[in-house]
Design a protein around this nucleic acid. Structure first.
Length: 935
RNA sequence: GCCUGGAUGGUGGAAUUGGUAGACACGACAGACUUAAAAUCUGUUGACCCGAAGGGUCGUGCGGGUUCAAGUCCCGCUCCGGGUACCA
């Protein structure tokens, strides 16, 4: 009987559906295992062959764990808010919900086609109000929380209020901006006086009005409203990401983009910087991803130093990692946006400063940070700072290499010891004080901490490493500085000026925000998915009646970013239908962390950081019992496309085959890979492709066919190299596609997609089918048993280390050898069907039945290999001379090293190798190798 | 620049702890079956040299090194992919 994959796959899919085979429930008697794929965005194009790679791997692993008796949670859902649907809505007026629904339907069909063992009853969609209700709830909780630095965790804002009422800010330290009071309106600060430095008294708090209290609390909330610099594009009425801006213009449309301060919701992720950094140690992720997160969080240790500004009362704070070089400071540099610039610039410099600030505001953050061009720019303010130790006057400049958002937005420049400062000093002719003994820093910068300091008073003679703590205590003693740990990690902007996202459960009264708690806020209908004419987000178009709940003067017009819904979705899968909590504690205690997370590496610093942050927040409130979401993660590589090309002779409609293309002047054109089999073009299909090719002529090769050229590149529609799984599933079946994607190579590596090899894998399944067709009740011989147990061991070991590609080879070898040894007894075939089941589940069910298995193969216990069948009593040793293998020697496995050595030396072929030379040494690794050193 | 992953036959790749490099598969070639083709099956297939069997030399991006033994470890490079960037 032929391997009729279509009938087999149809039959078992129906069977699984009718028995609800993938339904999982909590079961206290079994150990859980949670396998998760990264949340897909359901795009209109559907899945291409690159997508399922990770899904197949996780599915294989989930099935393997199920065989091992684990209670496996393996869910799937959709990150269904997002820009493409909104873009489509702008163009067509179709509600994004409709587009999204259509796309999800297509995704679902494709996913089901591949036979994944998802428990679809747990499916979630971020755009479903029943889901985003809880995203909104988590936002509310962040709004209602502050971060207690001493306790190192989030706490309810009510506890902060209590503390403020009884003792002010004296005894507690909330995470906040270093000078949080400067964000408050002047009226409040006036009441507290000039010298206010953050030590809020309970009397001052009790004295404040309700509005004022709300504004003060805003400085400490974990979700807070503040002004933040954004790339504003007024033509598009929206904010753009750094990489959507090119040369000061929007990438789409080429409209001018300007840096602008906008009031936005922000997440105080910086409060969690240290924990996010430290807890990386507990994760089984690749070192490269962990390292990238470390760099992103960017902890640096150093000191904050205060400089007085000459002839004013202003003070300038800077952060430095090199307080030891304090005597090398020769000027100061502020970010162009630094609030002090306005106040200190001398009238003579005012105009050039204004110009420079304007120019800087037109640059994107990326451009400011140099992307490519290393030219040094800056502008003198005409003001001077006073050196805290020497009192020397130091000119204050502004330059765009100093970023407002990092540290204090100002630096003390030490040209002798810092690359950028040195270049800046050289460029503008500023002093470069020599502070390193024996280093000529007028000629080149010296950035290491190894040289002994000079011209540095009490620090003289010390190396930088030793001088740092001494310099800090010196600064502390003088009251002009203190030890400080700084993080590069910035608070995350949480507002988007878009329609298709979660609405905030927030309304405004006198522009003071408060939570809407009477009812869930759902997305209102709008007449268009565009910003309003005065640049308000699309939600500002919603009429009052369009909101299902309307409180205060107005509702919040922003929506939440894409990462909101995806930061906690792994929790919702545990308890998808719960209408009273986001996930019951009982269920999250049972399912716990994701044991294995599979997805691309492109989410390294976005999703993977934010979901860690939210997990820690939920943990702080004891709503879940673990503080990291994803225990182990594997990042799959990208699947690249294989493009095919035809060669058109210039100026004609004639196409020349690949081998002969050099004989003519040709243009290389992409051709749709669906007309190409191997590299051979279906010329008829090609002619029917497009009208202008209808009368194409071909110069063929010797074999009478047209051969295409090829190249490996990213899969994309415009390159006509996109392979969808659909037609492959139709031609070969889902099991073949699953096996083939696994067989292609290591999961984590990038690899070209090439269907050439798929027939080999398909062939393997056919051979397997053929082997089982001969199933009988006999007793297997020893040879076959050895093959089986070798295969069990190899497949199990490889699955354990996620080497899915070699799992397939091992199965191929096993099947080939069993066909050879006539090992078709049911006793052998049943375990073999189980081994096959994770990778080719449909065929495995069929074969399980054929070989007399009971119930579904999915729940059959994973076979164990027995040493009895693995160890052999004979060993074939390679015998090498000076490392070169010369012959094989079969010996008894029980022989010890000395006996093996003697046997090797006495062997007749050894004599021929020695030939006059003497044996210097013999190395025997029992069971492995013999090496005889001669000379 | 920095961080990070990689480079092995014509192709995808295997070699898990330093121990027989090239498993498995594709492709190619040859053969069987066939009137023929397709399909299927069998064999050969890293390069080079001598040859009847058999044997030898070279060989894992490049140059060094450690070792009885290196694709694997160390030092120095080249190229390709990804991330990131004047982060004080």
């Amino acid at each position: 009987m032929e391997y009729d994959f279509q009938a087999i796959e149809k039959r078992w899919k129906a069977q699984w559906k009718s028995t609800d085979a993938y339904r999982v429930e909590e079961d206290p008697n079994r150990t859980k295992y949670y396998v998760l794929d990264m949340f897909p965005y359901p795009s209109g194009a559907g899945l291409h062959v690159g997508h399922p790679l990770g899904y197949i791997a996780s599915d294989v692993f989930a099935r393997y764990k199920r065989h091992q008796g684990f209670n496996v949670l393996h869910p799937m859902g959709y990150d269904s808010f997002g820009l493409p649907a909104e873009q489509y809505a702008i163009q067509t007026g179709q509600h994004p919900a409709i587009t999204t629904e259509t796309n999800i339907k297509r995704y679902r069909e494709q996913l089901e086609q591949l036979g994944f063992c998802y428990d679809w009853s747990r499916e979630v969609r971020t755009s479903d109000p029943k889901y985003y209700r809880w995203t909104q709830w988590i936002f509310s909780q962040l709004f209602e929380s502050w971060y207690d630095i001493a306790a190192d965790r989030a706490r309810p804002i009510s506890e902060l209020v209590q503390a403020l009422e009884s003792a002010g800010l004296h005894e507690i330290k909330p995470s906040c901006d270093a000078k949080w009071w400067e964000n408050l309106p002047l009226e409040i600060r006036v009441k507290w006086g000039e010298g206010f430095t953050g030590d809020l008294k309970s009397s001052q708090w009790l004295d404040a009005s309700e509005d004022e209290k709300s504004q003060i609390l805003m400085q400490f909330r974990l979700a807070y409203l503040a002004d933040s610099e954004v790339n504003w594009c007024s033509a598009l009425g929206t904010v753009l990401a750094n990489d959507e801006v090119k040369d000061g213009l929007s990438e789409r449309g080429g409209h001018p983009v300007q840096r602008k301060r906008m009031r936005q919701w922000i997440m105080r992720i910086s409060a969690y910087a240290k924990r996010l950094l430290d807890d990386l140690e507990t994760l089984d992720w690749t070192e490269s991803i962990k390292e990238a997160q470390r760099n992103w969080i960017g902890q640096s240790q150093g000191a904050e130093v205060q400089f007085d500004i000459a002839e004013t009362n202003h003070k300038l704070d800077v952060f430095t990692t090199r307080p030891d070089t304090i005597y090398g400071v020769s000027f100061m540099v502020l970010a162009p946006e630094h609030p002090l610039v306005l106040e200190i610039t001398s009238p003579a410099h005012q105009e050039s400063i204004n110009q420079y600030q304007h120019a800087a505001s037109l640059k994107s953050e990326r451009e400011r940070q140099g992307a490519g061009d290393q030219s040094v720019t800056g502008c003198d303010t005409g003001a001077f700072a006073l050196h805290p130790m020497t009192g020397k006057k130091l000119p204050i400049w502004i330059a765009d290499y100093v970023l407002a958002g990092y540290g204090t937005g100002a630096i003390m420049a030490v040209p002798a010891g810092d690359e950028r400062d040195w270049k800046f000093a050289k460029n503008f002719g500023l002093d470069i004080p020599a502070i390193f003994d024996g280093k000529d820093t007028a000629e080149s910068v010296f950035t290491e901490k190894t040289a002994k300091l000079c011209n540095s008073e009490s620090l003289n003679g010390l190396s930088g490493q030793k001088a740092i703590p001494i310099a800090i205590s010196m600064l502390e003693a003088k009251g002009v500085g203190s030890k400080q740990i700084n993080y590069r990690l910035r608070d995350a902007v949480f507002s988007r000026q878009r329609y298709w996202g979660e609405p905030f459960p927030v309304c405004y009264e006198n522009e003071i925000p408060r939570l809407v708690q009477s009812e869930q806020v759902t997305l209102p209908d709008v007449d268009a998915y565009l910003p309003t004419e005065d640049g308000e987000p699309p939600l500002a178009r919603a009429k009052r009646e369009a909101w299902n709940v309307f409180e205060g003067d107005r509702m919040e017009f922003n929506t939440m970013p894409g990462w909101a819904g995806s930061s906690w979705y792994f929790l919702r899968y545990m308890d998808p239908g719960n209408e009273t909590v986001f996930c019951s504690r009982e269920k999250s205690d049972y399912w716990g962390q994701v044991d294995l997370y599979i997805g691309g590496a492109e989410h390294t610093t976005g999703h993977l950081l934010y979901s860690r942050f939210w997990t820690k927040f939920l943990f702080d409130h004891d709503w879940i019992g673990f503080n990291e979401p994803f225990k182990q993660m594997i990042n799959q590589g990208m699947i690249l496309g294989r493009s095919s090309f035809v060669y058109r002779i210039q100026g004609t409609n004639q196409f020349v085959t690949f081998e002969r293309r050099k004989e003519f002047q040709t243009q290389r054109l992409h051709v749709d890979i669906s007309f190409v089999d191997g590299d051979t073009l279906d010329t008829e299909a090609f002619k029917n492709w497009r009208a202008d090719y209808a009368d194409a002529k071909f110069i063929l090769g010797e074999d009478g066919s047209y051969t295409c050229g090829f190249e490996v590149e990213k899969m994309s529609k415009s390159k006509f190299n996109v392979q969808t799984p659909d037609d492959l599933v139709e031609r070969y079946g889902a099991d073949t596609l699953r096996c083939y994607e696994m067989f292609l190579g290591p999961l984590t590596q990038h690899k070209p997609w090439d269907t050439k090899g798929i027939s080999g894998v398909h062939n393997f399944l056919r051979k397997t089918h053929r082997l089982f067709a001969q199933a009988d009740e006999g007793t297997p011989d020893e040879k076959s048993l050895r093959i089986l147990h070798k295969t069990i061991k190899k497949v199990s070991d490889d699955l354990n280390r996620h080497a899915f590609n070699t799992v397939i080879s091992a199965l191929m070898i096993g099947v080939n050898e069993l066909l050879d040894s006539k090992g078709h007894q049911k006793e052998l075939l049943q375990p073999l069907a189980i081994l096959l089941s994770p990778v080719a589940p449909h065929l495995a069910e069929e074969l399980w039945e054929v070989s007399g298995g009971i119930d579904s193969v999915m729940d059959a216990a994973w076979p164990e290999s027995h040493d009895k069948w693995l160890v052999s009593d004979r060993v074939t040793y390679p015998v090498s001379f000076n490392g070169k293998v010369r012959f094989q020697l079969e010996l008894d496995a029980t022989m010890n090293a000395k006996e093996v050595e003697d046997a090797a030396i006495q062997h007749e072929k050894t004599a021929a190798q020695i030939e006059g030379k003497t044996i210097r040494k013999v190395i025997v690794v029992p069971g492995r190798i013999i090496n005889i050193v001669i000379g």
